[in-house]
Amino acid sequence: MAGLVDSLAMPALSCRVPSSYVPSPSSSSSCLTLRQFPQFSGNVLKYRSGFSAIACSSSRIRFSLAGGKNPQTLVSRASSAFGPSHSSTGALTPEVKESLNKFLGEHKVVLFMKGNRMFPQCGFSNTVVQILNSMNVPYETVNILEDDGLRQGLKEYSNWPTFPQLYIDGEFFGGCDITLEAFQNGQLKEVLEKAMCS
């Protein structure tokens, strides 16, 4: 269990693309590139749950929900709160910092992850999504693959080199390892209950 470091690799290469709807975090050797995942050719893909994913032809992959009652997802709303993409400078710009302060002030539980809760693009992100789902708390997810400025800025903001990153009550809680351990020893439940009551 860990977060993924995404230093130099392209987004599509730096994360395991799940070959099924819910990827297993334990399948650590399944590193798929776009080329190895032939369905990603700009086509609209249908998944078991009925939503479709649209893969853009650029190096970034964007997923959107379609056909559902509410096509505007939490993810896209959350991501748009950060405005347009910034260039990949690796610095935490004042704009990103301010957006993060504001966003984290408005939402009690936020998971910055690769992909979204319906389609995690990384086993470690998926692990945290599954944990949060089991806790029955409302949470926001933000797909850091959609905004490289946010992705680089967050590493600095959180002083944490990997993703996923979980925030509870505006505070950095941890990555996958820490969240998993806190889930297992009951601390996560305590912290979440406290946050929900505050």
């Binding site: 470091v5 230093s7 130099l8 690799a9 080199p161 941890g174 390892d177």
Partner: peptide, 22 residues
């Protein structure tokens, strides 16, 4: 635990530039 992980991450700052998953 969070602070312990931070110590390890900080110690490995240089290596983390190349390490993919820790």
């Amino acid at each position: 635990l969070l602070e312990r992980h931070r110590l390890v991450n900080t110690a490995l700052t240089e290596e983390l530039k190349q390490i993919h998953a820790l």
